[in-house]
Write a protein that binds this DNA or RNA. Structure first.
Length: 579
RNA sequence: GGACCUGUGGUGCAGCUCGGAGUGCACGCCGCCCUGUCAAGGCGGAGGUCGCGGGUUCAAAUCCCGUCAGGUCCGCCA
C-alpha cells in the first residue's frame, strides 16, 4: 500500500505480504508464475512468486499463462473459503479474486525447476545462474550476505571507522599470491595488477592520518580454486593506528559477533585465543576445528630410546579415535595411504582390546611403550590409537589432517566455534636461494621478546600476527605492522631483500614511512566464508551470485574468452606459442 | 602438475559387477478432460550422439585406453 516502501508504480506490495489485514482491498502484485493449477475452462489457480514468497490468484475462466511468465495481477484480497486454507503457505489464509491478469513477459520453460525439492547439477545451475538465483535458497543466501555486510559496516562505523575505497588497478608487488595482470593501453608493455588485498594501500592511509579505516574490499588472487577459495573474494578489511593486537581483536570481534547475531539470532561468546604453537601441538593445524574433541598427544619421550625402527624419529604423535577399533582393515589401509599422500613415511595403528593392543606392530613394543599407547588421551577398550613418527611439524600436520578426515563434520554443521590463533612464526621456512620466507607478509612486526633471535634462530621468531578461525576454516588474518625503519631493515635483510630491491618494490611505502608513520595494526575477515558458514553451506559458491568453476571459468558468460583483434592491437600484445 | 569421484530425454535418478533391442522410475514439457486446487487429479503424447574419440567383441550405456567438462582434495593460496 502507499505506506509500504515496496510499492511501485506497477505494484502495491510484495506477494508474500498479502495477508488477512488487507481483506477487501483491491491490489496489484507482480511476479513470476510459480505454479498453475487449471480446472477446465472455469477455474484456475496461479501461484505468483516474487522474492518475498507466493500468493494464490484465483482466475475464473481459462488463462493463457505458463510457468515463469512474468505477470501483473490485480485482484481483491479475499479470505479463502472454508476448508481451503493452506497452513503451509505464509499467505495461505487469503487469495486474490476477481483477477485481472496482465502478461508483462512470456517465458520459455526454464532448463530446471525453480522449486527447492529438486537437486540440480551445479554445472547447469551455473550456466543459468540468473534462473538459479530465483530459487529460494539462493535468494536467502544472498540476502543473508547483504545483512552480514550491512551489519559489519554499521559495526565499524559505530566504532569510529571510516570507509575508504582503494584502487583495483595497482602496481605489481612480486611477493605472495600470483596476481592478475592488466595490460596498459596508454603505456604499452607495462602492466597494472589487481590487488591480492588492499594491504599496502591501507597502511598508507594510516600514514595519511585515517587512524581507523575499513572497507568491504574485493581481493583477487590468481591461484587455484577450492570449495573455500575463488579468484575474487570479499574481505572486511580493517586497519587502525595507535593500537595493538588486543584492540584489533576488540574491533573485529564486535563486527563478527554482530554479524553472527544478525545472521543466527544469538550472539556467540567472546572469542578465546590460542597460540599457534599450541594449536599445532594439539590439533596439528593452524586452523583447529574445535567442534569435536580429539586432541593429539606427544609420545616422543616414551619412544625416545625405542627399538622399533618405525618410531625412531624426533617426534612421535598419537591420536585416540574413540570406538575406532571397529575400523576395517581397508579403512585403516585407506587412512595409511592418505597419511602417505600427505608426506608421512607411514601410519601405525593400534586397536585397544581387553587383551591389550592389537596391531601388526604390537609385538615389537616394550611394556612401557605399549602402556603409553594404551593410555593416549584416556583410551579405552574399543578405541583406536593412530601414531605418526617424524620431524615435529610434519608429524603434527599429518595426524592433524587424519583427525579431520576421521572426525570433522561438514563445516556448515554443528556449533560455531571461533578461536583467535596468535603468535604465528614470523618466517615459515627458507626458499631455494636460502633466504627466509615471510609467513604473513614482510611488514609483520616480530614479537618484541624475539628480536634477538632474528639473527641467531630466525625460524623461532614469533610474530605479532593472528588468524581468526571458525569451524576449521581460516576466516581471516592480520598483524601488527612494522612502523620502525630499523626493524624493517632487519627483516628485509633476513628475507634477502636488498635495500635497492626494497626501494624498487615497496619504495612508495617505505618513503611514506619516513614522513611520520603511526604504530598500526589490522585485520581482514573473509566474508564469503563467514556467510557460507552462517548459511549452512560447505561451499562459498553458494553465497556468491556469479561464481567461477574450479578451473576458473564462468559457465554463464564463457569467460575467459578471446578478445578482439582491435583490443590485441591497442594493447600491442603478441602471444607465445604453447609449450 | 598430481590423486579420486561424477557425466544416461529439459531436470533428478536407476541400469554398468556379470556385454545381448535406448529398458525403467520421479519431476518437467505438449494435448485433451476436470468449478476449490495448492507437490492438484485423470487420460494420452513428444522428447536420447548413454559427454566425446578410439579399442576389444558377433554385439558396448555396460569392459579397456585416451580426452573434455564439473566436483573434492594435494601442490599452490606472502
Amino acid at each position: 500500500m502507499s505506506e509500504n516502501y515496496e510499492s511501485t508504480s506497477m505494484r502495491d506490495l510484495l506477494c508474500g505480504s498479502v495477508d488477512a489485514s488487507l481483506i477487501g482491498r483491491r491490489l496489484s502484485v507482480c511476479g513470476w508464475v510459480s505454479k498453475r493449477r487449471e480446472h477446465g475452462e472455469h477455474l484456475a489457480f496461479l501461484d505468483l512468486r516474487d522474492r518475498s514468497g507466493v500468493v494464490q490468484a484465483v482466475v475464473e475462466g481459462s488463462v493463457d499463462v505458463r510457468s515463469e511468465y512474468v505477470l501483473r495481477v490485480t485482484g481483491t484480497v479475499s479470505r479463502r473459503p472454508e476448508g481451503t486454507v493452506n497452513d503451509r503457505l505464509a499467505t495461505g489464509e487469503v487469495e486474490l479474486t476477481d483477477c485481472e491478469v496482465e502478461v508483462l513477459s512470456a517465458a520459455e520453460p526454464p532448463p530446471f525447476q525453480i522449486d527447492e525439492r529438486s537437486d540440480v547439477d551445479e554445472q547447469v545451475r551455473l550456466k543459468y545462474r540468473y534462473i538459479d538465483v530465483r530459487r529460494e535458497k539462493m535468494q536467502r543466501n544472498l540476502r543473508l550476505r547483504a545483512v552480514v555486510n550491512a551489519t559489519m559496516r554499521s559495526a565499524m562505523m559505530r566504532q569510529g571507522f571510516c570507509e575508504v575505497e582503494t584502487p583495483l588497478l595497482w602496481a605489481p608487488t612480486p611477493e605472495g599470491a600470483r596476481e592478475f595482470v592488466v595490460p596498459s593501453r596508454l603505456h604499452t608493455g607495462e602492466f597494472y595488477v589487481l590487488p591480492q588485498s588492499p594491504q599496502i594501500a591501507k597502511q598508507l592511509l594510516m600514514v595519511g592520518g585515517f587512524d581507523r579505516y575499513f572497507q568491504i574490499a574485493r581481493c583477487l588472487r590468481d591461484e587455484d580454486l577450492r570449495a573455500d577459495r575463488q579468484f575474487e573474494f570479499t574481505q572486511l578489511d580493517v586497519e587502525a593506528s595507535f593500537v595493538g593486537q588486543e584492540d584489533v581483536f576488540a574491533f573485529v570481534s564486535e563486527a563478527v559477533l554482530d554479524a553472527a547475531e544478525a545472521a543466527t539470532g544469538h550472539r556467540p561468546e567472546p572469542i578465546a585465543t590460542m597460540t599457534w604453537a599450541l594449536a599445532l601441538d594439539l590439533y596439528g593445524t593452524d586452523k583447529p576445528d574445535l567442534r569435536f574433541a580429539m586432541v593429539m598427544q606427544d609420545l616422543s619421550e616414551a619412544f625416545a630410546r625405542t627399538e622399533v625402527k618405525a618410531f625412531a624419529a624426533p617426534t612421535v604423535k598419537a591420536l585416540r579415535v574413540p570406538a575406532g577399533a571397529e575400523y576395517t582393515r581397508s579403512r585403516l589401509d585407506a587412512l595409511t595411504e592418505h597419511a602417505k599422500s600427505l608426506g608421512a613415511k607411514g601410519l601405525a595403528w593400534f586397536r585397544v582390546t581387553s587383551e591389550g593392543l592389537d596391531s601388526p606392530l604390537a609385538r615389537f613394543l616394550n611394556a612401557a611403550e605399549s602402556a603409553a599407547i594404551a593410555s593416549v588421551d584416556g583410551a579405552q577398550v574399543g578405541d583406536l590409537v593412530l601414531v605418526v613418527a617424524d620431524e615435529y611439524e610434519p608429524a603434527c600436520k599429518v595426524l592433524g589432517a587424519l583427525r579431520l578426515v576421521i572426525g570433522a563434520p561438514p563445516v556448515s554443521q554443528g556449533p560455531h566455534r571461533y578461536i583467535w590463533i596468535t603468535e604465528f612464526p614470523l618466517f615459515e621456512g627458507v626458499d631455494d636461494d636460502g633466504n627466509l620466507v615471510s609467513a604473513h607478509h614482510p611488514f609483520t612486526m616480530p614479537h618484541l621478546d624475539d628480536l634477538d633471535l632474528i639473527d641467531t634462530d630466525p625460524l623461532k621468531v614469533r610474530s605479532q600476527s593472528y588468524d581468526l578461525v571458525l569451524n576449521g576454516w581460516e576466516l581471516g588474518s592480520g598483524s601488527v605492522r612494522i612502523h620502525r625503519a630499523d626493524i624493517q631493515s632487519r627483516i628485509f635483510a633476513a628475507l634477502g631483500i636488498t635495500e635497492e630491491e626494497a626501494q624498487n618494490r615497496f619504495g612508495f611505502l617505505l618513503g611514506a614511512f619516513r614522513y611520520g608513520a603511526p604504530p598500526h595494526a589490522g585485520f581482514a575477515v573473509g566474508i564469503d566464508r563467514l556467510v557460507a558458514i552462517f548459511a549452512g553451506e560447505d561451499n562459498i559458491r553458494e553465497v556468491i551470485a556469479f561464481p567461477k568453476t574450479q578451473s576458473g571459468t564462468d559457465l554463464m558468460t564463457g569467460a575467459p574468452k578471446n578478445i578482439t583483434e582491435r583490443q590485441v592491437r591497442d594493447l600491442r600484445l603478441r602471444f607465445a606459442p604453447k609449450g
